[in-house]
């Protein structure tokens, strides 16, 4: 048994998202820095064919935000087949507030608490994210930091010997069909039953759905943004914790649905009962050099009228 590791999510806001943020800040929020609801999408990882060198290259799915992130009617539609994420957005009015650790800690903890609280209800928030920003509107520079809060499970999940293996095409096809039939855009679903007659249910119904199902046949399928052959993506982390804490499931099979033929499957389990202490959360996004830190988007070359005028010569 080896400890199960997860590939963290990465964010990819589109330029129209920054435009939407601009107009939200200027026209609606103004100096209001209260928290706002927002939406994003998450895609499965993809395999692409390298025409020059042969072979395939895995590309992780990322968390995308478009002009519809703040609920605008005219916003961009999320890509087909993507998972919907709900998030909390907070814009700070000064760079000092944005920099301060305490403010960020506070909002992260409040999001984490609401996730934990939701686990006790019938609508667990499994895919919640947080975005804090500081927008330098004059220069079209945006400082931002995403967080994808995930519960640290104690003890840690372990994966059976052999790790994740390639999933059978038939199972994948069936799980995809079931996911479509459930027609919610959430990331995960439960699957049980013999091949060809499998049935599915939302994650919140786990206790009833897996009643009497041997633990080897309990499948948790999810749209996986990870392309790593040996690690599932971040979103399943909260799902597993939720199943263990609320539904007492400590031994399930995870089915990582990935585009193309790269879906993976593996059986994971908890070595002991969950610790009774209040769990901690992690999940601030790392920046491009792999450190915990905020990112900067400089849209000046694309949005600054002065620079555009220069280029138009």
């Amino acid at each position: 048994m080896a400890p199960l590791q997860f590939q963290p999510l990465s964010s990819q806001p589109t330029p129209s998202f920054w435009s939407a943020l601009n107009s939200l800040k200027l026209d609606k929020l103004k100096l209001d820095d209260s928290e706002q609801p927002m939406e994003a999408w998450l895609e499965e990882s993809r395999e692409i064919h390298d025409r020059e060198k042969g072979g395939t290259i895995g590309v992780s799915g990322s968390v995308g935000l478009g002009s519809g992130a703040f609920g605008q009617e005219s916003g961009e539609r999320p890509p087909a087949g993507s998972v919907e994420l709900k998030g909390v957005f907070k814009n700070y009015n000064t760079i000092e507030e944005f920099k301060a650790t305490e403010t960020k800690k506070e909002i992260f903890n409040s999001v984490a608490d609401s996730i934990l609280a939701s686990f006790e209800t019938n609508a667990p928030q499994l895919d919640t994210f947080l975005l804090v920003t500081f927008a330098d509107l004059k220069k079209y520079i945006y400082h931002y930091w995403f967080a994808f809060p995930a519960v640290v499970s104690k003890p840690a999940w372990e994966i059976e010997e052999g790790g994740l293996v390639a999933a059978e095409d038939q199972l994948v096809a069936e799980a995809r069909k079931l996911a479509d039939d459930l027609s919610n855009r959430s990331g995960a679903l439960l699957v049980r039953g013999p091949a060809g007659q499998r049935t599915a249910a939302p994650v919140k119904d786990a206790t009833a759905f897996f009643e009497g199902v041997p633990s080897s046949e309990r499948i948790v399928a999810f749209h996986d943004p990870s392309h790593l052959p040996d690690a599932p993506g971040w979103p399943v982390r909260n799902v597993l914790f939720y199943l263990a804490s609320k539904h007492g499931l400590s031994d399930v099979t995870i089915l990582c649905l990935r585009s193309g033929s790269s879906s993976r499957i593996g059986r994971v389990s908890l070595p002991g009962p969950l610790s009774a202490e209040k769990p901690t959360f992690v999940g601030w996004e790392r920046n491009k050099i792999g450190k915990l830190g905020s990112r900067v988007a400089d849209l000046g070359p694309m949005m600054d009228p002065a620079r555009l005028a220069d280029q138009a010569v």
């Binding site: 650790t101 960020k104 800690k105 999940g283 601030w284 920046n287 450190k291 915990l292 830190g293 905020s294």
Partner: peptide, 9 residues
């Protein structure tokens, strides 16, 4: 950037 994350996580 180095200061930023101190104590955050």
């Amino acid at each position: 950037m180095d200061d930023e994350a101190v104590g955050l996580e």
